[in-house]
Design a binder for these strands. Structure first.
Length: 307
DNA sequence: AACCTTCCCTGATGGC
DNA sequence: TGCCATCAGGGAAGGT
């Protein structure tokens, strides 16, 4: 589940490796996530220079001469670089951690796109569960902005400010976890970092947005970039499938406070962490550090006993 | 408009 | 051992 820190980790790796290369050949599989005609895509992209890679939320953008090629990695999307002078190694799972890794692999049945570069290196897009998407936009004024028009605040930029943050919350009655998963609010936050940000700001994921105290909204505003930055600093979170462009797992899974730690002691108070479902998503929290408070707790409990 | 549910997709996992 | 149900979840689409 590549979220902002994982996509940023890939962006940083690939940008360094392929900036300035020319795409000399394109190989495509059948994939319903391609938002273009394959022949047109090949014609358009072939021969174009990769100027740089940028990111918006969970989207990765290849900036080419005349087009933007935009990747969304979905759940299991991987982008790796393959060096022809190095040996290919199949995917292996670590016997203890179960993490998938490979220093470098050849294309397999899950590899849906390959860019062959002028130095014979290849960029491989692999996506087992096919939730990923790839789009191609002509590089004209405002097209990128329009493409991303549904996305909300971009962390680490000036658009991420408290006024925008609070005004998006205005009038909302949904659960705060649901709001965090809404890409129109803060772009790039997914299930893992939503849970981590809520733990950091000591807010129960089922709390209703309109019932949050002002100080809690401020804490969440601070916590979101903080947990994302930490994810980037540790090279992303590898729960199962995430690997960087070198085929290595990230290290951030060791740093998680709540995600995937149900039953284990809270690092702050030792209480066993709990897992519930919110918005159809597994949701992890500490029942003591992140309480449902006062009347809202009574209502929640009463509701549980209704037939 | 806001909010919620369903669906897409495959591999890992656990029960029997 | 093998089979089957269940689970993981981002985001589009459809419904209320």
């Amino acid at each position: 589940m590549p979220e902002l820190p994982e996509v940023e980790t890939i962006r940083r790796g690939l940008d360094k490796q392929v900036r300035g290369s020319v795409i000399s050949e394109i190989l495509l599989s059948q994939h319903r996530g391609f938002q273009f005609k394959k022949a047109a895509f090949r014609t358009a992209v072939q021969g174009q220079l990769i100027h740089r890679l940028t990111r918006r939320g969970k989207y990765l953008v290849f900036e080419l001469d005349h087009h933007f090629c935009i990747f969304h990695l979905g759940m299991t999307g991987q982008l790796t670089l393959r060096d022809p002078s190095r040996e290919d190694v199949p995917f292996r799972r670590h016997p203890v951690t179960g993490l998938q890794r490979t220093p470098q692999h050849s294309a397999d049945e899950h590899t849906h796109l390959q860019f062959v570069l002028d130095n014979d290196h290849r960029i491989l897009f692999r996506d087992v569960r096919k939730f990923g998407k790839i789009a191609l936009l002509r590089r004209e004024k405002r097209t990128l902005e329009e493409f991303f028009s549904r996305l909300g605040l971009e962390p680490f930029t000036s658009t991420y400010n408290l006024d925008h943050f609070l005004s998006y919350m205005n009038g909302r009655r949904t659960k705060v976890k649901s709001l965090l998963l809404d890409q129109g609010f803060v772009a790039g936050v997914g299930n893992i970092y939503a849970d981590e940000a809520l733990f950091e700001s000591r807010i129960h994921p089922s709390r209703r947005v309109h019932q949050l105290r002002v100080y809690e909204k401020h804490a969440l505003f601070e916590a979101i970039p903080q947990v994302l930055e930490k994810g980037i600093r540790f090279g992303g979170t590898s729960i199962r499938d995430f690997i960087n462009t070198e085929g290595e797992a990230g290290d951030h899974q060791q740093q998680l406070n709540v995600y995937g730690r149900q039953g284990q002691p809270c690092r702050s108070c030792d209480t066993p962490l709990e897992k519930i479902v919110v918005s159809q998503r597994g949701t992890h929290f500490c029942p003591v550090c992140q309480p449902l408070r006062g009347s809202s707790r009574k209502r929640a409990l009463a509701k549980d006993f209704r037939p």
